[in-house]
Amino acid sequence: MSKALEFSPKDHVVYPTHGVGQISSIEEQEISGMKLKLYVIEFAHEKMTLRVPIGQVKNVGMRKLSTPKKMKTAIETLKGRARVKRTMWSRRAQEYEAKINSGDPISIAEVVRDLHRNSGQPDQSYSERQIYEAAFDRLVREFAAVEEIDTTQAGERLQKILEVE
Results as ranks from 00 to 15, higher is better:
K69A: 05
K47S: 13
R51W: 04
S102Y: 05
A93I: 07
E142Y: 01
G55R: 14
I108S: 04
R129K: 14
V146W: 02
T87V: 13
A82F: 00
A135N: 11
F143L: 14
R51K: 06
E142A: 06
P122I: 02
A109V: 05
I100Y: 03
E42T: 10
V84R: 14
V57E: 02
E46N: 04
A135L: 11
I41P: 01
I54Y: 04
V111Y: 02
E110I: 02
A144S: 11
L36H: 10
T151C: 09
G33N: 07
D150L: 01
E28T: 13
K85C: 05
K72D: 01
E156V: 15
F143A: 12
E28H: 07
I100G: 04
K70W: 03
Q56P: 00
A135M: 11
N118Y: 04
E142K: 00
N118H: 12
Y126T: 15
Q130N: 14
S125H: 03
K37W: 02
I54M: 04
T49G: 02
I108P: 00
S127Q: 15
E148Q: 13
E156A: 13
D123Y: 10
I106Y: 01
R117S: 13
T67N: 01
R117C: 12
V84K: 12
A44S: 09
G120E: 13
D114Q: 02
R92C: 08
M34L: 09
A74H: 06
I106C: 10
R113I: 04
F43A: 12
G103A: 08
Y39L: 09
D137T: 14
A98F: 03
I41C: 05
G55D: 06
P105Y: 00
S32A: 13
Q124W: 05
D137M: 07
M48R: 12
P68N: 06
E148S: 13
I108G: 01
W89K: 07
Y126V: 15
A74Q: 09
M62N: 04
D137S: 10
I75T: 09
I106W: 00
S127H: 11
Q130T: 15
R129A: 15
Q121K: 02
A154V: 15
E30I: 15
K85A: 09
H116G: 10
K99D: 13
A74D: 08
Q124C: 13
E30F: 01
H116V: 13
T49A: 08
I54G: 02
E133F: 14
R138C: 11
Q56D: 03
I54S: 07
I31V: 11
